[in-house]
């Protein structure tokens, strides 16, 4: 298996003024293997969003490098193989669900027939086929989360980056999303999941990474980490690691 995500010595310093700086990430190293679901955890402000933004080329690192699928992130072509679902996804509220997928399909340069077929399949998969002609302004939070997932899967990506994918979903929607992600893993896709829900991460992730104050404090399989840190539950493990870092 090869590394789909390879991050080396990644540092991001935000300069607030001439004298004030905030560290977003510090000497961050991580490798995520092909076909695994990797869970990224951390308290608010730990650097998860900074990491995702650098990985997606939205901000540039102060130092270090990120390689995805063997290509550096400043190569925009690599994004053809990435699907991304942001936390609380915001979309063009005047478009319908179907128009939104059509728009992103054009951004991905998908041929017309592929775009139409994928859109129909995905709208059914996320349970929005009946409301595909409704403008997004009228979608509920859960429906926006679902259309966001459909957008993230539109290009049939090799790597999925999901930021809190089940936040707005009810228990049934949450279960369906988890099942969908496990199905995608079976298809060989790599998934990087950032989440606050420990139970969700515990259920579907092969490995986890715990992040705080821009540093990766622990990485590995959950069972191994529990044994290593001599704690019973995932919650205890998380609290112990984060509190030890304070």
């Amino acid at each position: 298996m090869s590394a789909v995500i390879k991050i080396e010595n990644l540092t991001k310093i935000y300069k607030l003024s001439k004298r004030r700086e905030v560290t977003g990430l510090l000497n961050f190293n991580l490798e995520v293997e092909e076909g695994e679901i990797f869970g990224l955890l951390g308290p608010n402000g730990s650097g998860k969003t900074t990491l995702l933004k650098i990985m997606l080329g939205l901000i540039s690192p102060t130092k270090g490098k990120v390689e995805i699928l063997g290509k550096r992130m400043d190569n925009v072509e690599v994004k053809k193989d990435i699907g991304f679902l942001p936390e609380n996804p915001y979309y063009y509220e005047y478009l319908t669900g179907s128009e939104l997928l059509d728009f992103y399909g054009d951004i991905f340069d998908l041929p017309e027939n592929v775009k139409r077929r994928r859109s129909q399949e995905l709208l059914s998969t996320v349970g929005l086929a009946k409301v595909k002609h409704m403008v997004l302004r009228n979608y509920s939070k859960g429906m926006l989360e679902r259309i966001g997932l459909a957008c993230a899967l539109l290009n049939n990506p090799k790597l999925l980056i999901l930021d809190e994918p089940t936040t707005g979903l009810d228990p049934i929607g949450g279960r369906e999303t988890r099942d969908l992600l496990l199905g995608l893993k079976k298809e060989g896709k790599t998934i990087l999941l950032s989440s606050h829900f420990l139970s969700e991460v515990e259920r579907i992730c092969d490995r986890i990474g715990i992040l705080d104050q821009g540093r990766l404090l622990a990485v590995g399989r959950l069972k191994e980490l529990l044994k290593e840190r001599k704690v019973e539950t995932f919650e205890d493990l998380f609290i112990k690691i984060v509190k030890n870092n304070v």
Partner: peptide
């Protein structure tokens, strides 16, 4: 403001 740019630039768009 509406963060639509966040999603858009995460796609293969220069």
């Amino acid at each position: 403001e509406k963060k639509t740019l966040y999603t858009l630039l995460a796609k293969p768009l220069k």
